[in-house]
Design a protein around this nucleic acid. Structure first.
Lengths: 137, 137
DNA sequence: TCTATATTCCACCCGGAGGTAGTATATTGC
DNA sequence: GCAATATACTACCTCCGGGTGGAATATAGA
């Protein structure tokens, strides 16, 4: 019942990049500032780049930048890229086609929470995270 | 964002045992009826036995039985035994001491869902699952 | 007593998430 | 041109959840 470490890292990085305004952010600086393993983060940022969430610039003084408007980037998209959303959409007991018509024993106790989390992931944008009270990064 | 397979199995087994009334249930019959790997389930039931959720009877015609009242067995206890509750209680971004006073960027969007899930796990009993509409097992 | 059927315990395998190391490649600034 | 610093790519390692196999032990019932 938790995000992958990779999803945590991706969200923290994007919030950090967005908050420190600026332009390019090197993996080295992000790794140092956020305490995320350098090599691991490099591969993760490369993935976010290939999926069009960020843009990379090679060479000295290079790095990554967020290209799209922050109001356009939703948590669900980030999580989907990094770990997929399947586990957030599936039946809590692992059944196929578990719904109101043919529920599992936990359906009535779980489906509300599941729907709420999915709705939160799909509606919350990077802009909201950046503007949130949360100071930790 | 999902239960361990072991937690799924444990919940399904306990509901199945409780619903089929009866007394002793062999691992073999549970494995066959629920489609859970025999050896794997054997070890899981042994764990539930050592934690006092069920009682084992060895020898021919042996098996497991639920000893405590169904109203007394809560989802949180089952999940805690099988996989622990840490991942349900921790900060979604992995920070220590993330709370209202010192929140992470996702705190305001996540904490409500986290509290709701924990409250559901602690309040829902095996008796409620047994009586629920959910026919799947 | 003997056999069938049950739990119990041990060692092992597999795949994926998380993490590390080394090297190739791109590019800025001297 | 060349050194410094960046991303890009490949290969590997470790840990753990899930799963399998086999043998030891317990015991009801013929």
């Amino acid at each position: 019942m938790r995000l992958y470490k990779s999803s945590e890292y991706a969200i923290r990085c994007l919030v950090s990049m967005a908050r420190s305004g600026g332009d390019l952010h090197s993996v080295k600086s992000l790794s140092d500032n956020l305490g995320i393993p350098y090599k691991f983060l490099g591969r993760l940022m490369s993935l976010l780049g290939s999926e069009g969430l960020v843009e990379s610039v090679q060479g000295k003084a290079g790095g990554y930048r967020i290209v799209r408007p922050l109001e356009d980037i939703r948590l669900a998209e980030i999580v989907d890229i990094v770990e997929g959303l399947e586990s957030y959409e599936r039946c809590i007991l692992g059944f196929d086609r578990c719904d109101e018509k043919n529920p599992c024993p936990m359906h009535e106790f779980w489906s509300g929470h599941k729907d709420g989390i999915l709705e939160m992931l799909h509606s919350t944008t990077l802009a909201q995270l950046v503007q949130s009270e949360g100071k930790k990064i």
